[in-house]
């Protein structure tokens, strides 16, 4: 299937965000389609986090529109965005360290079942939620350590749990903020495999500094510089782009060896 035929899950139209006089994002437009990994690149301070925060609802945009399956969701608060299918992971691991791995996943899955009749029961008595926790633990390679206290996991496993918790909320759009940050080579390649598998059913926005991973995974790459969209296109186009090269001056070695 060509790119044009894939279903659009999330569309950001001319998003801008100003902090006082500083334009963190100006007129950034991005389309996320089911079955595609869309990588967002840019040097530090390019506005990648601001962009993710606007999509997730953590930051209201100064102007622009966000559409989920064609519906305007720009005004919805963060918890509502999650409920309608926009899931995000965090750059800094954001798990609940005193809960077990499974309790973390159950708490995430429980967010889809907040009726009073389901909230005032022990979490492990809700079969649907428990089933979902097992599914995502299996998917992310955590099935063997469900009862382990999350705070005692290795860094890589905590990153896996981070993803598992997002998946437990059944999102259709995944906003992943540096899922490979701080991972060893083995852990990294496992995560790359996982992301490749998740592509099938989700629209994925990937912010990542690991260029090997980005060029191995991405179907589309958008480059931000100083809050503005510099170039957007397939990996080959981005790799060949003179504008991208000059923006990444000093980092072009990294792109070259891919």
């Amino acid at each position: 299937m060509t790119e044009r035929h894939r279903e659009v899950f999330l569309e950001a139209r001319s998003l801008s965000r100003h902090f006082g006089g500083l334009a963190a994002n100006s007129n950034v437009s991005v389309t996320l389609r089911r079955g595609e990994i869309h990588a967002l690149l840019g040097p530090n301070g390019a506005g990648k986090s601001t962009f993710i925060n606007m999509l997730s609802g953590d930051l209201p945009p100064s102007s622009g529109t966000i559409l989920l399956k064609g519906e305007d969701v720009s005004g919805l608060p963060a918890h509502r965005r999650s409920r309608i299918g926009i899931g995000r992971s965090f750059q800094r691991t954001n798990i609940f360290p005193t809960f077990s791995v499974q309790e973390n996943c159950v708490l995430a899955a429980q967010s889809r079942q907040q009726q009073p009749g389901k909230i005032f029961r022990p979490p492990l008595h809700n079969q649907a939620v428990v089933d979902r926790s097992h599914e995502v633990m299996a998917l992310t390679g955590l099935a063997h350590c469900g009862s382990q206290i999350a705070g005692t996991l290795s860094h890589g496993e905590q990153r896996q749990l981070e993803i598992a918790m997002v998946l437990a909320t059944n999102p259709i759009v995944l906003l992943l903020d540096e899922p490979l940050a701080g991972m060893g080579a083995d852990e990294s390649s496992r995560m790359v495999d996982l992301l490749a598998r998740l592509r099938r059913d989700h629209a994925i926005l990937l912010v990542e500094h690991d260029m090997d991973a980005v060029f191995a995974l991405a179907d589309v790459i958008t480059v931000l510089v100083n809050g503005e969209l510099l170039e957007s296109g397939p990996p080959a186009q981005i790799k060949a782009s003179p504008a991208v090269r000059s923006a990444y001056l000093g980092e072009d070695e990294e792109i070259d060896h891919v």
Binding site: H79, S82, E103, L107, K118, F120, M165
Partner: peptide, 28 residues
């Protein structure tokens, strides 16, 4: 009893990391 239910876990989640709870879809 209350603190051992999902409601109790949600409270502890809010104490531990409210931002994450919001991101997971809880109106904290």
């Amino acid at each position: 009893w209350l603190l051992k239910t999902s409601f109790g876990h949600i409270l502890i989640g809010i104490r531990s990391n409210e931002h994450r709870m919001v991101a997971m879809g809880y109106n904290t």
